[in-house]
Simulated scan of single mutants.
Amino acid sequence: MSRIVYVNGEFLPEDAACLSVFDRGVLFADAVYEVTAVVDGGMVDFEAHQQRLCRSLAELGIDFDLRAAGLLELHRELIRRNALNEGLVYLQVSRGVADRSFLQPTTCQPSVVLFTQAQSLLETAATGTGLRVITQPDLRWHRRDIKTTQLLYPSMMKTLAVEQGADDVWMVEGGTVTEGSSSNAHIIRADGALVTRPTSPDILHGITRAAVLDYSRETGAAVIERPFTVAEAQQAREAFITSATAFVTPVVAVDGVAIGDGRPGPATHRIRSHYIQRSRERLQY
């Protein structure tokens, strides 16, 4: 049975849904998006995702009223119609439809698309085995803090990593790790301190990242926000990524060098368990 998706005011079977070829999201990646995890039929960090969406829209000058659009109710209805218990809701807002021009139009009606993806989030193979990452130069544009649909380079790098026998890529700029193809990067030093790059235009301001740092501080863990090098990562006790789709997932090797003993570590396991527990306590239905 096909999914029910939402496109510009209509709930439709996925094979009946379409966007105009003149949509600026199609022609220019002139669009922003958010992905909200769903666990036990409830949404994880929904309001935080909406706040970031509002910021992304403002940075691109897309005039879109989130409250008037009723995005919370749209998410709820899509989850209900697709009987989604665990997985994701993808939301995309583009500037809208206009004849192709590099000059951004000011009279467009934004296009809105939502769809669900059933996916295991709580129990995954990568949680048990850990991820092997390779490093590559970060050649993306320099407004990575805006969550746009401009994802070609990360897609190329993820594909390259898999072709080389790894699971993902950590991108490097100026000698330090920025982030993964679709995740934030973290290491745990020998003294137990969690080190991660601070928010700036260099990285996406991850919702899961922020929650993990808050929850880590609640447990008394030392959190240091600064860039770290590939060598530091290779010498770390543990490493992991965070994202709405991966939650907290261990990294066990960087460029073929094992992290710690080459297996997912206990600190990462504790952080993941704490994150899932706290997220379940705050689910939005």
Rank of each mutant, 00 (worst) to 15 (best):
M43E: 13
V44C: 13
V44R: 04
D45G: 03
F46P: 06
F46H: 13
F46D: 02
E47P: 06
E47M: 09
A48D: 10
A48H: 11
A48S: 07
H49G: 03
H49P: 06
Q50R: 11
Q51D: 15
Q51F: 10
R52H: 09
L53M: 11
C54K: 15
S56A: 13
S56D: 08
S56E: 10
L57H: 05
E59M: 07
E59F: 06
E59P: 04
L60R: 02
L60N: 00
L60V: 07
G61H: 04
D63H: 09
D65E: 09
D65I: 06
D65Q: 02
L66G: 00
A68Y: 00
A69L: 08
A69P: 09
L71E: 07
L71Y: 07
L71M: 10
L71N: 03
E73K: 10
R76N: 11
R76H: 09
E77F: 00
L78Y: 04
L78H: 01
A83C: 09
A83M: 08
L84W: 03
L84G: 04
N85P: 12
N85D: 14
N85Y: 12
E86G: 13
E86L: 11
G87D: 05
G87S: 08
G87P: 03
G87F: 02
G87A: 07
L88N: 01
L88K: 00
V89E: 04
V89L: 02
V89I: 13
L91N: 12
Q92M: 04
Q92P: 00
Q92F: 05
Q92V: 05
Q92A: 03
V93P: 02
S94I: 00
R95S: 05
R95P: 02
G96H: 10
G96F: 11
G96E: 06
G96W: 11
G96V: 07
A98M: 03
D99S: 15
D99R: 14
R100I: 11
R100E: 13
S101R: 07
S101C: 02
Q104I: 04
T106S: 15
T107R: 05
T107L: 06
C108H: 09
C108E: 14
C108M: 13
C108V: 07
P110M: 04
S111E: 02
V112D: 08
L114M: 12
L114W: 02
F115I: 04
F115T: 02
Q117P: 08
A118G: 14
A118Q: 15
Q119V: 11
L121K: 03
L121F: 07
L122T: 14
E123H: 04
E123D: 05
A125K: 10
A125V: 07
T127D: 12
T129P: 15
G130K: 10
G130S: 07
L131C: 05
R132P: 02
R132H: 07
V133H: 11
I134H: 14
T135W: 12
T135D: 12
T135G: 14
Q136S: 15
D138K: 14
D138I: 13
W141L: 13
H142A: 11
R143Y: 12
R144Y: 04
R144C: 15
D145K: 10
D145W: 12
I146D: 04
T148H: 14
T149P: 13
L151P: 00
L152K: 00
Y153P: 00
Y153R: 05
Y153D: 10
Y153M: 07
Y153K: 08
P154Y: 08
P154N: 09
M156V: 15
